[in-house]
């Protein structure tokens, strides 16, 4: 199962079995956005509290496969406590890692190179690239987070 080990790294299985920041937040003050993957029926809810342009709290709810659940869990760790701007950079870097953004320079902003120092635990999801069908699973929570950040900033 050598190919599979790239997809199902230990850290992914850990975040699948023990998802971080799971649950809901009261809305308001939190905002919530929901994302669906019509292919497999996965759904994710991202609850977000943004204060002074800082992601103060984030909770993830919903159901999905190991890839979408672990991606959501890793994502919540990666953005919690960060500024909105840094969170948006993380989203762009993550999408670059999944080869969804080819350009190093998007919207005039340079994206960091992809390695364990720049993306931390998220590097575990890099193996998903080899399984194109599953890229949508991994990006579903991130697209939903993008929407939630927009909703929070529009308030």
């Amino acid at each position: 199962m050598s190919g599979l080990e790239d997809l199902y790294r230990e850290i992914i299985l850990d975040h699948y079995k023990n998802p971080r920041n799971q649950g809901t937040l009261e809305t308001p003050p939190a905002v919530v956005e929901q994302g669906y993957n019509p292919l497999c029926g996965d759904e994710v809810k991202v609850f977000l509290v943004v204060e002074d342009e800082i992601v103060k709290d984030i909770k993830i709810d919903g159901q999905g496969c190991s890839i979408s659940r672990s991606s959501a869990s890793l994502m919540s760790n990666a953005v919690k406590g960060k500024s909105v701007k840094d969170a948006q950079t993380t989203i762009r870097t993550f999408k670059k890692m999944l080869a969804l953004k080819d350009e190093d320079d998007i919207d005039g902003e340079t994206i960091e190179p992809i390695n364990e120092h720049t993306v931390g635990e998220l590097i575990a999801l890099q193996g998903v690239v080899k399984f194109p069908v599953r890229i949508k699973c991994a990006t579903l929570p991130w697209n939903t987070l993008t929407q939630a950040l927009q909703s929070a900033m529009a308030k």
Partner: peptide
């Protein structure tokens, strides 16, 4: 305990 999508992935292997 295993999502159908993951079942299908492992079965494919």
């Amino acid at each position: 305990g295993v999502h159908p999508h993951d079942v299908s992935q492992i079965l494919d292997q």
